[in-house]
Design a protein around this nucleic acid. Sequence first.
DNA 1: CTGAAAGCGCTTACAG
DNA 2: CTGAAAGCGCTTACAG
Lengths: 339, 339
Amino acid sequence: MAAHAGVSRQTVSNALNAPQRLTAPTLARVRAAIDELGYVPDEAARALTSRRTRLIGIHIGPTAHSHASTPEPLLAEFVRAAARHGFRLVVLGSFGDDAGQIAAFDDVWRRRAVDGVILTDTHTDDARPAWLRERGVPFAAFGRPWGAPDSPHPWIDVDGHGGAWLAVDHLASSGHSRIAFLGWGHDEAGGDDRERGWLEAMTTRGLDARPHAHASGDTVVAGAERAAELLERWRPTAVVCASDTLAAGVVRAADRRGIAVGSDLAVTGYDDSPLARLTHPELTSLTQPFAAVADFLVDHVVMASGIEVPDPPPRTRVAEPTLVVRGSTGGVRAGALSF
Amino acid sequence: MAAHAGVSRQTVSNALNAPQRLTAPTLARVRAAIDELGYVPDEAARALTSRRTRLIGIHIGPTAHSHASTPEPLLAEFVRAAARHGFRLVVLGSFGDDAGQIAAFDDVWRRRAVDGVILTDTHTDDARPAWLRERGVPFAAFGRPWGAPDSPHPWIDVDGHGGAWLAVDHLASSGHSRIAFLGWGHDEAGGDDRERGWLEAMTTRGLDARPHAHASGDTVVAGAERAAELLERWRPTAVVCASDTLAAGVVRAADRRGIAVGSDLAVTGYDDSPLARLTHPELTSLTQPFAAVADFLVDHVVMASGIEVPDPPPRTRVAEPTLVVRGSTGGVRAGALSF
DNA sequence: CTGAAAGCGCTTACAG
DNA sequence: CTGAAAGCGCTTACAG
């Protein structure tokens, strides 16, 4: 390779890692040779000498704290975002609790098998951030540090409050005023935040913010049960739900009563999961900005591992979801309204 | 580390990589020191010298050829199966076509960033196996080599034919005889195989195998449309579907006509996707043996990369799905019947 | 059965 | 601005 370009091995390395050190003609010559020979450096050798694997670890699958895991579209965005910096993703497995995840982090970190990790599904009393900080593992979290707002690590979260507000806005501007809320009960993570958004949007508009209920869990069956009572008692013309699952429950409950979703009753979901397109009519819902989330998290891990990134993100960020209008709110034309 | 155990560095290496070379007492002493110090070898150094990364590449996300991607539960099984051999998984991104995937394989292989790859979603005129074979990349495929049955690479597939047969068996033994089939039209991959299973099971039992229909696509809406015709024309007491999506369509069509699924009409899905638990009643379906699939594929890649595995699998295998009985076939008690 | 030597393929200081 | 040297932390032959 070096011989082919008529330069030394170090010059090739410089062309790849510190192009500013070479004169333009030399660089051009070396690059031409690189292209011609299809040369790419051996990752293991590069990792050994540079003390950098260009690998980021992440867990997948449901955790002990939430039904929400790393959905595949988000994983795909992580891969894309990492590739911008020449990084790849390593899947660390699916473990039910913090201790299991920490054990996996410990293993890969001591082997120097990754440059950092991404945390998802943060929760109250999360043991992971403190552990990672102590060990000096570069990391960033999807989800705010519930119960520890001053935690110094980088994180990004999606605005549940703002999303619910968007849903109320959409419904109110379509003429609805009896807008109920269905959540899945109290936890400190996402659910409450979404309920507060509904509450404030209603109050701000001077609408009756009493019609609300909590399902016994985030399932279709639990949602349908509670929806039946909610519909019976308050006769709402619209229901804002804290999840697509609960919204599907509302659709089922309405179907059973002969209430036509989309015309007699408007329903909004949340998360824009695959389920949102499986009900009839399809659910108006709130999409999470996965691409922005992935860029943010990857950039932070890459930065923390000692590499400069073009457009450094702030330490924390609350990103806005997007309302996707479908048939469940009478949307004739499907479209996206931005916040 | 070596000093702590009073042996040389090579003896530590032997204890880790070739324990049979050491005498029992030496091995015990070295292992004690390893545990005490929590020593684990640096992966980059190990990879450089052993020419082995212990990393396996895989694509995620939908492809150009199928709506079916690598579902998260399968990915989790891959991680578990790989860990048995000290391997990890690298996500190569989500690309729409063979060419995109091949480009990604080419990149990681030339960088020596993986020891091999796992292929999913095989299809007719699949360009990937031949490319990988030419380059000498260790690989194994989930899905038989459609259109090229004599392809010499290792593969595992799930028996669609046998699964449909299981469904018919289950229904017939519950007293059904007017059992219809709903598929998604002709393709050479999974769909036809499942239809043939229904056809043969029906014919073998001397039942009328005419009532069948093909939806215009594998969606709930398309399924509901075709189901309406099917129900109208043949008045079946049971419908075997080629997917959970189509089965959900049948449930919807039945609901609209006031036909009670589970008592008036039995419905079976296929794949046991999350959707199977979202309909009402929940769908009897066929579960894919993901753990066995993952073990098989990982073992083959590990073997092909030059490492012996305890219980070497055959080159090809057709694994049997398992019938999971739920409310849609009147299952009072949910349970699993093995093939 | 155990140890001293060589080397995996790069990058990182450091001379020229 | 470019090149010769050293070394990253292991494992793999090969001597003893």
